[in-house]
Write a protein that binds this DNA or RNA. Sequence first.
DNA 1: CGACACCTTGAAGAGGTTCAAGAAATGTGG
DNA 2: CCACATTTCTTGAACCTCTTCAAGGTGTCG
Lengths: 265, 265
Amino acid sequence: MFEVTPESMGTAKRGDIASDTKLQPITPLSVKVACSNCNLRELCMPMGLKADELDRIEEVVAVRRKVKRGAHLYSNGENFSSLFAIRTGFFKTCITTEDGRNQVTGFQMAGEIIGLDGIVKEHHTCDAIALEDAEVCVMPFDRIEELSREVVSLQRHVHKIMSREIVREHGVMLLLGSMRAEERLAAFLLNLVQRLHARGFSQSELLLRMTREEIGSYLGLKLETVSRTFSKFVEDKIVEVKQRHVRILDTEALKLIVNNNHKPC
Amino acid sequence: MFEVTPESMGTAKRGDIASDTKLQPITPLSVKVACSNCNLRELCMPMGLKADELDRIEEVVAVRRKVKRGAHLYSNGENFSSLFAIRTGFFKTCITTEDGRNQVTGFQMAGEIIGLDGIVKEHHTCDAIALEDAEVCVMPFDRIEELSREVVSLQRHVHKIMSREIVREHGVMLLLGSMRAEERLAAFLLNLVQRLHARGFSQSELLLRMTREEIGSYLGLKLETVSRTFSKFVEDKIVEVKQRHVRILDTEALKLIVNNNHKPC
DNA sequence: CGACACCTTGAAGAGGTTCAAGAAATGTGG
DNA sequence: CCACATTTCTTGAACCTCTTCAAGGTGTCG
């Protein structure tokens, strides 16, 4: 029933230049990490870079790191030294307090930058955990600062990435502060599918990488409420749900729910 | 009963160098806006600047702007060009959607920087409204970028300000996603009084510049719930409340409420 | 195949909202 | 400066949404 497979949602479409060419290391340029060949470039990198600027940025993004499903990319309290660009895989970030509160602050996918929380105190203030096997580009922050003093478009880009995160969080505050359960879940699904679509995936089918409990934490709901709300959407023929496979049948209905134009019911 | 007056909470302690000296413009240095003489400097500015660096930064912060109570400093959709450092007064930032949702995303006071949301799309995505007559330093963002390419400590400072805002919003997400009404209001009061204390005000008395409705919007509660929760705190002898005057009688109790160590009740 | 994590559903209960009325403070114009 | 209009705040009662507790089902992985 669901065409979506773990493979088709994950790394399938991403070619790894480095491994493709390592059997014939004739052109030295291609063995190092190559942003210029990365198909996530338009998500990570500023536009309109000159060739020599791109070369210099590639020097910053020299190291990659693999993170197994369930492993921490970084943890609360850990020293901050780098930002990470997600190449493949899916992460959650969450904060945990001493008294046992827990809050998922976001879900991040390929092309997104994570670690910005660590800059201010020079140590991380949340955990970043891989929800599936993942690979990230490690970008030492002092190198980023150094280079962004010289490459204006990179400087601007860094500022925009941080501002974008601030604006995203405003949206989450709106969601948590003013929406009811159905509205939250509808907004969540639309947001996820829109970001996946921007990466070449289906507009209507998605594979949730997170549990109902993690969705609930992010949305300020209990896992039972998330489950019940899914069931209600299924009843209303708005989505099909089979565990973590979700097919959206009626995008417009979801949008109406978010914009609470369904009030007259 | 309450020593706190509007005067004592507002602008009383801030001397305005520019207006003091404009009748005798003998020393040209003192007529321009002088960060070096601003007692908010430690809140706005990076530490350990050399004299010439500070001079250059002062050139960036050349203009001030007064904002009347109730007026917008900037509005959703408006072109972004500057960040603002609050000199005096008190602001709220809020987002409003077409379908009529409204969410206060923060309350800002002297020494804090506002306008970061506008960087990513080069126009603002929220409204900033003065809750009392206010004055801000206008800092054109392209000048900030220019200068932060040359003054490393300024660059670092800009990054930290943005990261701090991201971390602050994580805290709000925790509050909205996992706390009950009493916990939210307790956290809100503690946060406000802590920031006021850092600016030389009382640790136990504060004058709320916002309505119950605005507090409720920020905390994801209805105004009636805010009012009832205040009444409950008064009943429990944790605070005294007389309209917008609040005196905290038992800070520890508030902290216990936030850390939900009051469960055994 | 069994252990474990995850998901669904029901029933009862708590916390917050809604609606409504009145009181207190604030602002405005004569 | 007072009277009036307006805004803001408080409180009660009924209601509703979401949570809590509980049980059973489904899927996954060694």
